[in-house]
Simulated scan of single mutants.
Amino acid sequence: MNYGIVSQEQIEQIDQIITTKLIDLGVDCVVVIDMAGNIITAKDNTESKYDVYSFAALAAGNFATVDAMAKLVGEQEFSLLFHKGQDSSIHFSKIDDELLLICMFGKDISLGFLRLNVVDVIEGIRTIWGSKEK
């Protein structure tokens, strides 16, 4: 995929998918970042108080660390990560070699439900990004 210039229309399409498939269903905050920790887009439920810029930088480092651990155990990669807390959880999914989708959600959202919706969101984002090359 080509990640040169992202149009405002593409960002709006991605935001719409994220809002419909994740935020409207109860996810607190969703961030799409590149592997360097730069935010492509971020959406939240308007009640979230996350510092998405610090979070994006730490998430990129976390994913890179886990990627190195995957190679140490003979895996090419771990394509998703999940951190569960008492009240909040974080789900990281690799969209492709350049992008990560990060979801922050509370205990009222089941991991299975989230993962089903994340699959749809990732497919939508891949389609939107891929459409740039046409």
Rank of each mutant, 00 (worst) to 15 (best):
M1T: 06
M1R: 03
Y3K: 11
G4V: 01
G4Q: 07
G4R: 06
G4K: 09
G4F: 05
V6P: 00
V6L: 14
S7Q: 03
S7A: 04
Q8V: 03
Q8P: 00
E9H: 07
E9C: 00
Q10G: 03
I11C: 01
Q13R: 15
Q13W: 03
Q13L: 13
Q13V: 01
Q16A: 09
Q16V: 01
Q16K: 13
Q16S: 14
I17Y: 09
I18A: 07
I18V: 15
K21A: 07
K21W: 01
D24K: 15
D24M: 11
L25Q: 14
L25Y: 07
L25H: 11
G26T: 03
V27R: 08
V27T: 10
V27F: 06
D28Y: 09
V30M: 06
V30D: 03
V31R: 08
V31D: 07
I33T: 11
M35P: 02
M35Y: 11
A36K: 14
A36Q: 14
G37D: 07
G37S: 06
I39H: 06
I40N: 01
T41D: 02
A42K: 11
A42Q: 11
D44L: 08
N45K: 12
N45D: 15
E47F: 13
S48M: 04
S48H: 10
Y53S: 15
S54N: 14
S54C: 10
F55I: 14
L58E: 11
L58V: 09
A59P: 00
A59C: 14
A60H: 05
A60E: 04
G61M: 07
F63T: 07
A64V: 00
T65D: 06
V66M: 12
D67Q: 15
D67F: 10
D67R: 14
A68H: 11
M69S: 09
M69V: 14
K71Y: 02
L72C: 11
L72P: 01
V73A: 09
G74Y: 05
E77V: 05
E77F: 04
F78W: 02
F78Y: 08
L80D: 12
F82N: 13
H83V: 13
K84E: 14
K84Y: 00
K84H: 05
K84F: 00
G85S: 05
G85W: 05
G85I: 02
Q86P: 02
D87F: 07
S89N: 13
I90K: 09
I90L: 14
H91C: 10
K94C: 06
K94T: 02
K94F: 05
I95T: 00
D97C: 04
L99D: 01
L100W: 04
L100G: 01
L101E: 09
L101A: 15
I102N: 07
C103Q: 08
M104L: 15
M104Q: 11
M104K: 12
K107R: 13
D108K: 15
D108G: 06
D108L: 10
D108M: 10
D108V: 09
D108A: 13
S110V: 02
L111M: 09
L111V: 15
G112M: 01
F113V: 03
L116I: 10
N117D: 08
V119C: 04
V119R: 15
V119W: 06
D120K: 15
D120V: 03
V121K: 07
E123D: 14
I125Q: 01
T127D: 12
I128Q: 05
W129F: 13
W129Q: 06
S131Y: 03
S131P: 05
K132H: 12
K134H: 11
K134L: 08
